[in-house]
Amino acid sequence: MPFLEIDHLVKEFTRKERVIRAIDGIDLMVKEGEFVSIVGPSGCGKTTLLHMLAGFVPVDQGALRLDGKPILGPGPDRGVIFQEYALFPWRTAHGNVMWPLEIKGVPKAEREATADRYLDLVHLEGFRDHYPAELSGGMKQRVALARILVLDPRILLMDEPFGALDSQTRELMQEELLEIWGKTGKTVIFITHDIDEAIYLSDRVVVMTARPGKVKEDFRVDLPRPRRLDIKKTPEYAAYRNKVWDLLHVEVIAARAQTPDGRA
């Protein structure tokens, strides 16, 4: 039985009495522990899909199931990582990681210790008492990751989490994410614009079409794990890279020619 099930998902937005179809029948099955990346041209509905998985946005048609149970609203079993970090500016790094534990009602001493442990996991123990305004982009995203992991969600939903970072920091973060994924064995849905990122990280890459978004291609990345950054120099890697580039290029061109109401 699949762990996460996306079944004929359709989503439409109504704007000034015009209906815009953002997602047009997506089917996807994800196994437990799998790392799946989703790539697609801008505006094809990736964020919308993720927000529906998170339960922020209602489903129009079709169904979403996690472990056989329908997804009906937000919940701590699905940890969301936002591109904008979404840290609470009035709390330190440590305070942010403790926040969800307070919500759960974990006793003080225990949540202090747990938060520290997770800050260690993302290598931020030295920045425990810094406020988000005093952290770099990469550090903020690591705090956000620790804050989500502390709840031990069953699946991580990440929307271009490293999109705002420079390419060096981004590669470091990718390595760290893989390390954490290796330790925790979480299922991950990872949205990105970056082809390299998708291939380097994932077990599977899903390429979406221009809006209205459908699954264009869905394939396995059979590169050995654990992966190191130098894997990017291998010919196997280059072959995957070219494949995704070709698939995506057509769709990006199609997306560019679109008008707001979706006619080409």
């Binding site: 998170a54 922020f56 940890g79 979404a86 609470f88 926040w99 307070e102 919500i103 989500i148």
Partner: peptide, 26 residues
Amino acid sequence: ERVLIWSARNMGASRWQVFRRVVVPA
């Protein structure tokens, strides 16, 4: 910011907790 509220909801906060611990401090 909407993401702050969403992320709090995602971490299991109730409506009252969102008000008390996100909206008010923000």
